[in-house]
Nucleic acid binder design. Structure first.
Lengths: 223, 223
DNA sequence: GGAAAATATTGTGCATGCAATTTTGAGATC
DNA sequence: GATCTCAAAATTGCATGCACAATATTTTCC
């Protein structure tokens, strides 16, 4: 596996995080240090350090003297997370409208144009990848690494709950038209519109999730 | 020393964080694990775990195999942090305008009224404490623990750079009038105005800091 | 038979030690 | 005098072991 430059602790943190995100480790699972150490072929020390790191991201819960468990997110907490991410994404879009360089604006436009073809071909796979890239451009475009980091971390944390995002019919075209609204606002340097458009866009994703995941208990707050 | 319920690792993380925030450990200081272990009378293991935790908050920098140092924030990074905090505070205000309960609104108004007296008495000490409380109410008022946490953490991280905040003459009254603008917007349920007013308010703090800390290299970005 | 107490077991918290890497310092060469 | 090379020292990464707290199990008592 090539150059082992990173420490075992970091590698472990990454692998365990991946296992949680892709669902191999289900919410509520007890994370026994001995077990993890055995599974990954190390001692408990790096496992412990990796767990501390994951605990700060909220992926796992660390109860002193009582071990770690994969965080169980209630649907209410999930809504909170989605709202927080929406606000952060919107803020990135806002700052992007104010701060993006001409080159960044051009790149954003080019990606948007390319995505139109994917919609036309109904290429969900390619569109999903491009979509991630599209959003990432706003993180960078905010020119605020602190904010960009927070947003990217939250997005990653919510990844497990966004799998079926583009499955619903017509959602690709809808998403793309929303992207267009955000793009126009950013290119026009209209911070408030960029904020509003992005917030609207990600709220749709949130709604899509709720319809897919919890079609029954759909109490919605007044908006 | 009462009930030692928390682990050594947690206690260490807290003490080291405090030492950094109050300036005992200056930016750039190397954090030797043996040294810290000796100073706090433990072994290296809990020290290492505490350092991992602090690294994720950004208070220290952890360079694999090369030890940890107290993060040196350049004035540019500091500006980034202030901007990020401003955006988060504004977002909390925005959500507060949408979500605060009548009780929370009343509490906010009462605090605001009380602070008028402190301004009249020119009681900087009391005003600073009340100011923190005022802002905290918006974190809670957002009804989004994720966002509230992020904002509170950032505020804490920036605490060392806000000491002289209310020293400048007339700043108390100015701050209070800004609070009034935020308050009115929130009570009126006007999300956009609450966002703008809070952003304006915290930008003033940022500017005050820059005038105090870096009166020379004051390149400002176009706003 | 069920609840409470006592015991056994498991697992975490922390200390210690060793190997490997980075850093430091001395000496050599240009 | 500066730079390069190489060895010594320092420091991190990780493994192992032990003590104590938390949990599971058995035993005792009503």
């Amino acid at each position: 596996m090539a150059d082992e430059r990173q420490t075992r602790t970091e590698k472990l943190a990454g692998e365990i995080a991946d296992a949680i995100i892709d669902g191999s480790l289900e919410p509520g699972t007890r994370l026994d240090e001995h077990m993890l150490a055995a599974r990954y072929g190390t001692s408990r020390t790096p496992v412990r350090e990796a767990l501390r790191k994951l605990a700060t991201t909220g992926l796992i819960e660390l109860r002193p003297r009582r071990g770690a468990i994969v965080t169980e997110v209630t649907s209410q907490q999930l809504e909170t997370l989605f709202v927080a991410m929406g606000e952060l994404e919107a803020t990135c879009a806002r700052l992007s409208a104010l701060s993006m360089t001409p080159i960044e604006r051009r790149r954003l436009g080019a990606l948007y144009d390319g995505m139109a073809d994917m919609v036309a071909r109904d290429d969900v796979e390619a569109y999903a990848a491009a979509n991630t890239h599209f959003h990432t451009l706003f993180y960078a475009g905010s020119h605020n690494p602190v904010l960009a980091d927070m947003t990217a971390t939250l997005r990653r944390r919510l990844a497990p709950f966004r799998h079926a995002q583009f499955r619903a019919p017509g959602r690709l075209a809808l998403s793309h038209s929303e992207h267009g609204a955000v793009l126009r606002a950013v290119l026009a340097g209209d911070a408030a519109s960029a904020h509003a458009a992005m917030l609207h866009h990600v709220s749709l994703v949130e709604d899509a999730f709720e319809q897919l995941a919890a079609p029954s208990s759909s109490r919605r707050r007044a908006n």
